[in-house]
Design a protein around this nucleic acid. Structure first.
Length: 790
RNA sequence: GCCGAAGUGGCGGAACUGGCAGACGCGCCGGACUCAAAAUCCGGUUCCCUUCGGGGAGUGUGGGUUCGAUUCCCACCUUCGGCACCA
């Protein structure tokens, strides 16, 4: 017997897999109908800003176990990999240390590919795609144009996060506590022309279709909250002096009689008319509108009275009109009726400016001071008041969403160019399809200077209008990288297609993704954007499904000293661990820590133990290999343990989706085997251990499979099936309780009738000692326990 | 503040449907092998009491339901996430 040599074994099998392209899967022949035997396994693709960290190791090892498990259960498994290779970190690294974002990105990608191969992950590398390659972003641009044609991509002026130091717009994710995540400067709100995707058009579908997918409930909740549908009414208030009706949105029309003032957002177009040249009002509005995000988060309210009054349609009362910063222009109509008695924010403002408070709902939840509606429970009053007002043309039912359209233009370099040309005559014109891709040009300086880096390359910017041929200018903004990752899973199905982003029949064969694995931090971003993209593509007949990810799982964070491991915060190097312990040991170790959806506090304690376990397995299997083959259907306690192990591992992966307890189950089997080396089932037990552990430790399992005399490949061997009859116990340990306390245990044949179980209980000396001669009441759980209560 | 998840030995965790709490592993203790060490193997390891037979307590805290609760219900505490002027 040789010593276990992780590196030699891992290198050996990795070369075989690479040479044989073991994990490549072909697309179906044209006309093949989707079947149950195909399985699309996907983990979120990495962002190549450095090398992989332990969080990735957990994520991809999880996916790898599922991949092997499904393959061996007869599925044709698609398990591709790619790179989310556009984005700020590469650009920032280029600015900081010199070099080109492309070189930095590709260097990182190569380092990651090496790591992935060293980990032995079963990936179909022939389908690799990268967001920054023209063959990929050509189709990102094509999709953008498709959306643009349908009005789903559009331009508008909107308030955006602006970092005055970095001179760029920031996405919401890059604003942390009102400050720029990179330089720490307080972020301002600026009104700028931006590109948007009209994701709000799909708000209801994005909400309703959550019912159709198998996702963690907490993730659905985050999305529901983010979409934030709320039902209510739009009510018209009249401002007589301006001769205007102003609509407000409210979810509580039942409180209309309690309105005591009226508030308009500082950014509202009404402000000019309301101010009527009043300097104080205008000054307040402009300052309040430009308030930094950080300050808004303090929730301190301010406002100014405009001198105007709005008429409450329910009772004709004149309400003073204020402009205040706690009313948001982006939500509802940008104006509210204020009911301080029944709204916390209005109350806070009313107290601050000494405005009246009038309660219109009593302690029983019934309306008071509300004219003909007095006495109604407030829930019933809502539709009554809306109906009454709409009869007079002053209200209508309305629905509002918190969800905003997705702002995706970025004033930075390393991203997908937006294929748009601005013509003085024709406005924003899409670049014709046959001119795609619009290649990302070279620039002299990536530094943001208040305008996008692409704007400085005049050869790029100056072009002609596709419609009239006149002089025109290209769009200089690039796309948010979340656009790239909103459809990559479709490109994997048909990665080399030169005529379309993907072939619909092929995509329909593989889609939806049967199992998606990634961090919950993408709940409101990537996971929502991708759902939106798929719905739109389905509407344009490009795709048969309406949801991309049928089943979703979030792995936990791997934390170091309480902090999430990430590239920016450093962490543990997987390479060093592979070097010291081997990939199989790392794979077992990271999954043995606990349930995969729970966070792991990183500690290297115990990695030695996984190596020890593999060595033990190595030794025990070699010993068993020297034994004669186990007879078919051999029935010994060890054989039964092996069948039990098969059943446990299968159930854990297939039904429970847990990956730590199967390792414990195999450890138990190996322990039993090492205690009974001469058992006729020894060889069967060894084969079982190696076979079911294979998804966790594919290299050493393959090697040991050979040691056990197999010429076949374990990675393509059928998953073992437990013999049901071997799982039945012949005897059980009957627990005997008195008053719920365990007093004795006896081994009895399984399946005894209740009265015999009770007889066993009454026969026990230890039970009798606690009965004090009483009969007691008896509770029997067949094949488990007898409890006598006195 | 609102919403959600989680609290089990010295540590990571197990106990899936209300039925033996602590599987498996780490660590620690003791032993075997060895001139010695490493490696390996064997045994022990929730806490308290014990006349060594056993007895008592115990799954964040306090209550409840039940013959029986880590598991179900109520309240609270702690930790970690999400949202945070969304009318």
């Amino acid at each position: 017997m040789n010593e276990y040599d992780a590196h030699a074994i891992e290198k050996k099998w990795q070369s075989v897999w690479e040479a044989e392209q073991t994990f490549h899967v072909d697309n179906p022949a044209p006309g093949t109908a989707p079947d149950d035997e195909h399985f699309y396994m996907l983990e979120m693709l990495p962002y190549p800003s450095g090398s992989l960290h332990m969080g990735h190791v957990l994520n991809y090892t999880l996916g790898d176990v599922v991949t092997h498990f499904k393959r061996r259960n007869g599925c044709k498994v698609l398990r591709p990999m790619g790179f989310d290779s556009f984005g700020l970190p590469a650009e920032n690294a280029a600015i900081k240390d010199g070099g080109h974002p492309l070189e930095i990105t590709e260097r990182n990608m190569e380092a990651i590919r090496v790591q992935m191969r060293l980990m032995g992950w079963a990936i179909d590398w022939q389908r690799e795609v990268s967001a920054h390659e023209p063959t990929y972003y050509r189709w990102t641009q094509w999709l953008f144009l498709k959306f643009f044609e349908h009005g789903l991509a559009y331009r508008k002026a909107a308030p955006v996060n602006w970092c005055p130091n970095d001179q760029t717009v920031l996405s919401n994710e890059h604003v942390v506590d009102g400050r720029c995540w990179r330089c720490g400067f307080v972020v301002e709100t600026r009104n700028m022309e931006q590109w948007f995707f009209k994701i709000t058009a799909y708000a209801d579908q994005l909400l309703d279709d959550l019912e159709t997918i198998d996702w963690p409930e907490r993730t659905k909740k985050i999305q529901r909250q983010h979409i934030g549908r709320s039902e209510g009414a739009e009510v018209l208030f009249r401002i007589e002096e301006l001769d205007r009706d102003v609509a407000v949105f409210t979810t509580r029309p039942d409180t209309l009689f309690g309105a005591t003032f009226f508030v308009v957002a500082p950014e509202s177009p009404l402000v000019q008319a309301l101010a009527g040249g009043d300097e104080e009002v205008l000054t307040y509005a402009s300052i309040a509108a430009a308030r930094p995000t950080e300050e808004r988060a303090t929730r301190e309210k301010s406002g100014v009275f405009t001198g105007h009054y709005a008429t409450n349609p329910v009772n004709g009362e004149k309400l003073p009109v204020w402009i205040a910063d706690y009313v948001l222009m982006e939500y509802g109509t940008g104006a509210i009726m204020a009911v301080p008695a029944h709204d916390e924010r209005d109350l806070e403002f009313a107290k601050q400016y000494d405005l009246p408070v009038r309660a219109v709902i009593d302690e029983h939840g019934r309306l008071v001071g509300s004219g003909e509606f007095d006495g109604l429970p407030w829930r019933e009053a809502i539709p009554r008041i809306v109906t009454w007002l709409s009869g007079r043309g002053r209200a209508k039912p309305a629905i509002n969403y918190r969800l905003r359209d997705w702002s995706f233009s970025r004033q930075r370099y390393w991203g997908c160019p937006i294929p748009i040309v601005y013509c003085p005559e024709h406005g924003a014109v899409g670049v014709p399809e046959d001119q795609l891709p619009v290649l990302l040009p070279e620039v002299e300086d990536y530094r943001p200077k208040g305008k996008p880096p692409l704007a400085s390359n005049l050869d790029f910017i100056n072009t002609t209008c596709p419609k009239c041929g006149g002089p025109a200018q290209r769009e200089a903004d690039t796309m948010d990288t979340f656009v790239d990752s909103s459809w990559y899973f479709l490109r994997y199905t048909d990665p080399h297609n030169e005529h379309a982003p993907f072939d619909r029949a092929i995509a329909d064969f593989w889609m939806p993704i049967d199992q998606y694995i990634g961090g919950i931090d993408h709940a409101k971003g990537h996971l929502l954007y991708s759902r939106f993209f798929v719905k739109a593509m389905n509407d344009y007949d490009m795709l048969g499904v309406r949801e991309p990810f049928a089943r979703l799982f979030h792995q936990g964070w791997v934390k170091l000293a309480g902090k999430r491991m990430s590239k920016s915060q450093g962490g543990v190097s997987p390479n060093e661990l592979i070097d010291r312990f081997g990939a199989d040991a790392i794979r077992i170790y990271i999954l043995f820590q606990g349930p995969a959806d729970q966070d792991i506090d990183w500690t290297p304690d115990g990695i030695d133990a996984t190596v020890r376990f593999i060595r033990r397995l190595w030794r025990v299997v070699h010993e068993a290999a020297a034994r004669p083959p186990s007879p078919e259907g051999v029935d010994t306690p060890l054989a039964r343990k092996a069948h039990e192990t098969i059943a446990r591992v299968t159930d854990d992966v297939d039904r429970r989706f847990v990956f730590n307890t199967p390792i414990a189950a195999v450890m138990e089997l190996v322990n039993e085997l090492s205690k009974a080396p001469d058992d006729p089932a020894a060889r069967f037990a060894a084969e079982t251990a190696v076979s079911v552990l294979q998804p966790w430790t594919p290299h050493v399992a393959e090697e040991l499979w050979g040691v056990l005399g197999h010429d076949s490949r374990l990675w393509e061997a059928a998953w073992p099936v437990a013999d049901e009859t071997m799982l039945q116990r012949e005897t059980i340990e009957l627990v005997l309780q008195v008053n719920g306390k365990v007093r004795d245990r006896v081994r009895v044949p399984a399946g005894l009738p209740q009265d015999e179980l009770v007889a066993h209980a009454r026969a026990s000396e230890k039970v009798r000692a606690h009965l004090n001669g009483e009969e007691g009441r008896v509770i029997v759980v067949p094949d488990k326990l007898v409890n006598i209560v006195i």
